[in-house]
Amino acid sequence: MLGAVLPALAGFHAGVLANSGVLANAASSGVRLGHASAWVVFVIGAVLILSGAFGVILLRNPVHCALMLVVTLLGIAVEFVDEAADFLAAVQIIVYAGAIVILFLFVIMFLGVDRRESAGPERMKAQRPLAVLLGFVTLAEILVLSRVQHWSTGYAGNSQYPGGFAGPLNSRDQNVQTLGQSIYTRYLLPFEMTAALLVIAVVAAVVLSRRQESVAGEMSVEEQESVVGE
């Protein structure tokens, strides 16, 4: 099935590129990988991504799942490098592998849930086969829909914004400069809103995980009496 889908997809996107015509005359900037080495990097990243994903799904111990998630995130970062998204590759490593997975591991250790999943009777009959079937249906749906023309085309630039609404990807600047200029000019308001979102998330985490009976740093009546009694 994949062999039938891939050429169609490739032809479809070649058509998109020919229509938009922006990539053809775009000056390539920075260090570009050669053809063969780009394929090598792609295959390495794909192997990392898929093995990590299978590990997350199949392994029993949640700690092992978190470590396999790191493998997948590393593979995604490799693919980002392959697609010349240097800043996102670095951020992917720092934010995901450095912060989010550590948070997962911390919660796993903190709660002591690194025991095996209970193999008790399933509440829903035939959940596993149904789940695998639905996963395949999802995959087939995406692949079939992506063959439909104009399903995945979007704003492809016009005379006013030749490189698309957010700005051209292949400018003279480095990737970080291009991304920063777009975020700090055209997407400044969403960027400011993320600050509010992060503050809300921090406050929510503190409120949710706080113990109700005793605030941190606050002594109960018994503790106060014991201190006074001494």
């Binding site: 590129l17 922006v22 951020v91 490189g163």
Partner: peptide
């Protein structure tokens, strides 16, 4: 990359921020 638009990477940037907030909550 296909559309030569930096907007894809900007979207990923915001997805990263929202994913971090989502994981925390």
């Amino acid at each position: 990359r296909l559309q030569n638009d930096i907007g894809g990477q900007v979207s990923v940037f915001f997805v990263l921020v929202v994913a971090a907030a989502e994981v925390v909550v």
